[in-house]
């Protein structure tokens, strides 16, 4: 017990890094994913095809590779080449990658809404943006909560990938202590931290699902 209390500060510090990556990614990737989904279903074919290609690229290569590319290779790319410090590089990779997954979830959600809803809105005079904002997206949210919850929980654990850019997230902090003290208990403690975080998320999504279910038969 004393030992756990002793290593706690380091693990909490690592959790801070993990939570930062998680929160910033969610805040940026969700709106970007929504924009991508709307572009993907847009009648403007060039846009739709381009977004499709983007999603293929982001889902088709490992997130770790994307992170390494942004950190090490991006500076040497002509024109757009910029050198990013480790934290922004990691965030950029996470946002670009997760936005692609969110985009597909949102697209599926939008397309699951019955055509009659669009027609009902149209004959009442609602424009396309009004129809999306007032009619389609609110109904979509309810349907996509389960897959979004999945994706969000995956993200909590994926944050541990930032160790490749030598940042001290929760898992890397734990591993550091394990290697220093020759004991595996920091792993157990860090597992508890992850479980606590995902438990909070699970409750949060359960609450949201209940709230959005009021309109059900």
């Amino acid at each position: 017990m004393d030992y756990i209390l002793k290593i706690l500060p380091q693990l909490i510090e690592g959790t801070g890094v993990t939570l930062q990556v998680f929160l910033i990614t969610i805040v940026l990737a969700v709106p970007l994913g929504l924009a991508l989904a709307l572009a993907r279903i847009s009648r403007w074919r060039v846009l739709s095809v381009a977004v499709n290609g983007y999603i293929w690229l982001m889902r088709g290569t490992p997130l770790m590779l994307q992170m390494l590319f942004i950190y090490f290779a991006l500076p040497f790319v002509p024109v757009i080449g910029i050198r990013l410090p480790d934290f922004p590089a990691a965030i950029l990779a996470f946002v670009l990658n997760y936005a692609a997954y969110f985009a597909e979830i949102f697209r599926a959600g939008i397309q699951s809404i019955d055509r009659g809803q669009y027609e009902g809105a149209k004959v009442l005079g609602l424009s396309y943006p009004q129809t999306m904002r007032r009619i389609v997206l609110p109904q979509m949210i309810r349907r996509i909560l389960p897959p979004v919850s999945n994706e969000t929980i995956t993200l909590v654990k994926d944050t541990s990938l930032i160790y490749v850019l030598a940042m001290n997230d929760l898992l890397r902090a734990a591993r550091g202590i394990v290697q220093r003290d020759f004991t595996t208990s920091p792993f157990v403690v860090s597992a508890c931290f992850y479980l606590a975080m995902t438990l909070v998320l699970t409750w949060g999504f359960q609450y949201l699902e209940k709230r959005y279910a009021v309109a059900d038969e």
Binding site: D114, Q117, G120, L124, Q130, P138, Q139
Partner: peptide
């Protein structure tokens, strides 16, 4: 227009369904 399959907005109450277009449009 009134449709065969109603096309009410399921996420809104009866009152909200009625006032939606007058307010938004």
């Amino acid at each position: 227009m009134v449709f065969q399959h109603f096309n009410l907005f399921p996420h809104m109450t009866v009152l909200q369904n009625i006032i939606e277009a007058p307010m938004t449009v």
